Amino acid sequence: MSPRRRLPPVPQYRGDARPAHLLTTEELAALHLKPARATPDAVWLYERGQVSGMSALFDRTAAVPADQPPT
């Protein structure tokens, strides 16, 4: 078994308790947006039945259009 990585020093949310403006990259993509930077604004820890995981969350208000070239 590989060792667990440390979580980044950002806010952590569990279950459905996360602010509405913090979205995953998939949720941003559905809105034709992408994160403006690679570092997440928060981390979402979730459990769905027997499955648990962690996902990066990005501030929707700081997101950029998905077709915008990197700077």
Score class of each variant (00 low, 15 high):
57 L>H: 06
6 R>V: 14
22 L>A: 00
53 G>E: 05
12 Q>F: 01
50 Q>M: 05
49 G>R: 01
20 A>V: 02
15 G>S: 11
53 G>Y: 07
2 S>C: 09
68 Q>T: 12
65 P>T: 06
38 A>Y: 08
46 Y>P: 03
63 A>F: 03
23 L>R: 01
40 P>R: 12
27 E>C: 04
63 A>L: 08
2 S>F: 09
66 A>G: 13
55 S>Q: 11
42 A>W: 00
40 P>T: 10
52 S>H: 07
38 A>N: 05
30 A>L: 14
12 Q>M: 08
65 P>V: 03
28 L>P: 09
10 V>D: 12
57 L>F: 10
39 T>G: 02
66 A>H: 13
43 V>M: 10
22 L>E: 00
49 G>C: 04
35 P>E: 02
61 T>M: 11
64 V>R: 01
38 A>Q: 12
56 A>C: 14
4 R>Q: 14
1 M>G: 15
24 T>Y: 05
65 P>D: 11
47 E>A: 10
8 P>D: 11
17 A>R: 15
69 P>V: 03
61 T>F: 11
38 A>P: 01
45 L>N: 02
37 R>V: 13
57 L>K: 00
65 P>Q: 04
32 H>S: 15
19 P>S: 09
33 L>P: 06
66 A>I: 15
6 R>W: 14
69 P>H: 01
61 T>P: 11
60 R>S: 03
12 Q>E: 15
19 P>Y: 04
44 W>N: 00
16 D>N: 10
35 P>S: 00
54 M>K: 11
4 R>I: 05
1 M>C: 13
59 D>L: 07
51 V>S: 13
58 F>M: 04
17 A>F: 13
17 A>Q: 15
21 H>Y: 06
46 Y>C: 09
31 L>W: 02
46 Y>L: 10
28 L>V: 12
25 T>L: 07
35 P>A: 01
28 L>K: 06
56 A>N: 10
56 A>S: 12
31 L>T: 06
29 A>E: 15
58 F>L: 09
38 A>F: 07
6 R>M: 15
27 E>Y: 00
22 L>N: 00
29 A>G: 14
37 R>P: 05
48 R>T: 12
47 E>L: 06
25 T>Y: 02
5 R>S: 14
39 T>N: 03
64 V>T: 07
17 A>S: 15
58 F>Q: 04
50 Q>P: 01
22 L>M: 00
53 G>K: 01
66 A>K: 11
46 Y>H: 13
64 V>M: 02
39 T>W: 12
63 A>V: 02
53 G>Q: 05
5 R>T: 11
47 E>F: 06
15 G>V: 11
28 L>Y: 10
11 P>V: 04
12 Q>Y: 01
24 T>N: 06
45 L>T: 03
23 L>G: 00
21 H>D: 09
13 Y>E: 08
8 P>Y: 12
6 R>T: 14
20 A>Q: 08
36 A>M: 02
64 V>L: 02
65 P>Y: 08
